[in-house]
Amino acid sequence: MTTDFKLDITLTTQKKEIPPFDQLVFGTSFTDHMFMWDYTEGRGWHDARIVPYQSIPLDPAATVFHYGQSVFEGLKAYRTKDEEILLFRPDQNMKRFNKSNQRLVMPQFDEEFALHALKKLIEIDRDWVPNLPGTSLYIRPFMIATEAHLGVDPAKNYKLMIILSPVGSYYKEGINPVKIAVENKFVRAVAGGTGDAKTAGNYAASLLASEIAGENGYSQVLWLDGREREYIEEVGSMNIFFKMNGEVITPALNGSILDGITRKSIIELLKYWNIPVTERRISISEIQEAYNEGILEEVFGTGTAAVISPVGELFYNNEKLIINNGETGALSKKLYDTITSIQNGTAEDVFGWTVKL
């Protein structure tokens, strides 16, 4: 297999109007250009190109429609006060992208070249990178199977693409606490399945429970394991952390939990601050017991979109567990402020997480 590392660029002749940065809604506006890269079995990756943002013609029999070979990533670019553009740990996203591809029997790609193409794409559309607090340029790399074939086999043809979207806060609550319902009927993923891959099917499986939670006034659901309905996995599409009696605990990666890049960063940051942090199996019964004993101090979700999302209420077994009086905890706020300050260049990056364009 060979890989063609040539990058062709075709600029648009009809630029879009950039939306006001103080009115951004998450994931609804897209920049002028996109990256596309084709894969053909026996030929490898070829025809890497940056082109005007456009629709994609696909055969109705394309494998992605029928057997779900689809993987995506999510990361962000930030504009600093000095007008520099920073990426946050993009190498980790590319590494996880390829790990997900492996699980879905999709082709590996050259991570260094993909990152090069991403940087070039952002340079071309740099005017779309917002500069207001809480805003960023959301980056969505994704790969789909394009072979026209109705057969339950890995496809022979694929397309890798990257699109960009200027965004505001993911949750309208911002850094304010959200209300979460513990889900004990539906499951997001199971060990041995695709839960640790960032594939579209995992998110489709989560929609019904999230819809029901929303109808009952909750922002998202807390997922439990698929076997015993007892052990905590994720919250919505985020990783979850609990601060109990001074110790921070997060579910250990077990094959059904996504290896979040923000999760990884939070753990590294807590260790840097000498705050006890543990990755282990944790049950909802243990959380309820900690709440009853008064030692459940903070709960927060972590992810690229929201960074830190404090949890002010957990609803479980018809009981409302009000956490930290429904207010954002001191540690949640400190983590949010530190991570976002590193991302937007206002704090020193002692970890080497950011990458300048």
Rank of each mutant, 00 (worst) to 15 (best):
T3D: 04
T3P: 04
D4Y: 07
L7G: 03
D8S: 15
I9L: 09
L11Q: 00
L11K: 11
T12F: 08
T12L: 03
K15Q: 08
K15I: 04
K16Q: 02
E17Q: 10
P19I: 08
F21T: 02
Q23C: 07
F26A: 00
T28A: 08
S29T: 11
T31P: 02
D32V: 05
D32S: 01
H33W: 00
F35K: 02
M36R: 13
M36H: 07
W37K: 05
W37R: 03
D38W: 14
T40K: 14
E41I: 08
G42K: 14
R43P: 00
R43W: 12
W45M: 09
H46F: 14
H46M: 12
H46G: 05
D47W: 04
A48D: 01
R49N: 01
I50W: 02
V51I: 15
V51Q: 06
Y53M: 11
S55Y: 14
S55P: 00
P57I: 11
P57V: 08
L58I: 11
P60F: 13
A61T: 10
A62G: 07
A62V: 07
T63W: 01
H66S: 03
G68A: 07
S70D: 08
S70C: 12
V71F: 13
V71K: 07
V71Y: 10
V71Q: 03
L75P: 02
A77L: 00
Y78W: 14
Y78E: 06
